[in-house]
Amino acid sequence: MITFEYVEPESLEEVLALLEQHGEDAKVLAGGTGLINLMKQRLVQPAYLIGLRQLAHSPELAEIRPNSGLTIGALCSHRTIETSALIQHRLPLLATTFRHVASVRIRTAATLGGSLAHADPNQDPPPALLVLDARLRVQSHHGEREIELSDFFVDYYETALEPEELITTVIIPPQPADTGTAFLKFLPQTHDDYATIAVAALVSLDGDTIIRARLALGAAAATPLRVRAVETALRGQAPTPQVIHAAAALVAEEVDPLADFRGSVEYKRDMAVVFTQRAIEQAVTQARGASGNV
């Protein structure tokens, strides 16, 4: 392990002041499952590590709060989100998605904000959060701003977050009625693996017409990917197999996967189509049976 100085501020203000002071020399430590691994491999070598542990009881950073939509504190663990009765009731898509992440032990430590800032394109939560139109509230010593999640991921392990900024809250806007969702994670190897391809879909129906469709993929490019071409192709259409099939086929042109141990570029592209189709079908089925339940 590299050497560094660990600091553990008592308040958010102190955290932000330290980030302001140290900039790129500092990294923020939440669950550590991503960052500590990178540090052990010497891929990231911060001089200062700012531990957020003392903020674990800050309502803003650690709670899941209902409002017209929902806000989730960035320090909530994956396990907290997966098991939250509020999430299970209001946003079952998120409960399902977070349950697919790694193992219970990793989900216990890994936080929502940490995983987003980590920006590994193979992670499961971003596609689900993208179809929920999530926004991030980020703060710095100078103030706060909101970033659309779809604008947040810039490149491979790169985000729109400035070195002095901290993600404090994830904001999920209210979700429409008569809506179905799906999250599919393709795991052709073992169940503890990263996805070969992951797809989240959201479909709202008015009678037999798709009035809203959102689709996002993980492991399909250098960043998590919202695929608006598919959404446009579905909107205003009846969810027939032909429509879904044709819309899903558009994904092939949109994805730009990286070859890795979980599949070649060509295979991931083909699987993106297969799982997009399956996810839309599943979301449509759920929407048909839905009564305002997302």
Binding site: Y6, L29, G51, R105, A109
Partner: peptide, 18 residues
């Protein structure tokens, strides 16, 4: 795996200061 305040964690990814 050890339990930290009752929760399972990977002690290889946990800083002792935390």
């Amino acid at each position: 795996t050890v339990l930290l305040d009752g929760q399972p964690v990977s002690s290889c990814l946990t800083l002792a200061v935390t």
